[in-house]
Design a protein around this nucleic acid. Sequence first.
DNA 1: CTATGTGAATTTATTCACAGCA
DNA 2: TGCTGTGAATAAATTCACATAG
Lengths: 184, 184
Amino acid sequence: MSEAGQQSISSQDLADFLGANPPQIRKDFSYFGDFGTPGVGYKVENLAKQIKKILKLDVVHKAALVGVGNLGSVVMAYQGFRIYGFDIAAAFDIDSKKIGKKVNTITIENASNIRTLKKRKIDIGIITVPRGAAQETAEALVKAGTKGILNFSPCYIIVPKKIKVITVDIAMDLARLPYYMPAS
Amino acid sequence: MSEAGQQSISSQDLADFLGANPPQIRKDFSYFGDFGTPGVGYKVENLAKQIKKILKLDVVHKAALVGVGNLGSVVMAYQGFRIYGFDIAAAFDIDSKKIGKKVNTITIENASNIRTLKKRKIDIGIITVPRGAAQETAEALVKAGTKGILNFSPCYIIVPKKIKVITVDIAMDLARLPYYMPAS
DNA sequence: CTATGTGAATTTATTCACAGCA
DNA sequence: TGCTGTGAATAAATTCACATAG
């Protein structure tokens, strides 16, 4: 909406857009402050800024990707991370045929270099390795000072409690559909 | 656990595994029936079967993928859908250079063939086209009788209310991390 | 003895209704 | 007049404690 030049939006319109209801929108925002203008609505630009601040997206985060296979390449090529302030600043693999090659201005490094992440101010890890290597990859990332992990391997990963892991399992996402689909 | 030969599991162990607590596990299951055995726990095999039934995953669902680009190819190659009873039975693209080629025993068809889905008993659509083509793709899928859509395009899609859409936006998943990460 | 299933108590979330501001 | 912000009312979810079944 900001890009489209829209100045402000009401809780009603936001609710329609998100499939919620107006009081819910207003109540939720009110927990974090008074973002709106009575009689007008919420200023799009300001609202986006406030939400980014709440979600700690107001600073740039550097991320490292481990496992430059098919999925890893797709993730690296994806530009959508930018608007949330993410910068994939490093990529690792164990395949010597890949190490040294460039993907998108990033040179693929040997996975043993993961230990240099802390020095390089990289605090987010993206795991796109085969399932069997996910746990050891996570451990290497944690050892290197990673504070958050986005895991694309379809398995649970065990890390110290203070490390946040978000696992994206597209099969599970697909598996949510049938429940809502009327019997054929 | 079933594959590992584990016979049964307690609500305590399930809670530890999922990051929940035992009464929550038991209460949730109890809404759907008495799956457990007092003094023993839940039989793994039976529990999986019951959950699949609740989530309507007890029948095979055929899915069609639209947009065989980088991401589409990764999704098609992914074997993880199988355990939830999904079968990617068709793939479509508009690029004549791709049409006719085979990916994984599936021959890529012209997107205009989407209209044949109903006849072919395919009721789930997977959208992996560029953002600009997502809405029209969704409309073609709905027109062809699709009941559920898994959308990988980073945009909201407007469809009739009876159609369930699940949008997977990996940037949004990544964006959830910083909130949980301690300030550096 | 062990671990489930479940009413009751508690906590949390949502909805409502409306005072008040632009 | 239009829409926010918010206490109060309602609804929902979670936790607890324990009777009960294997």
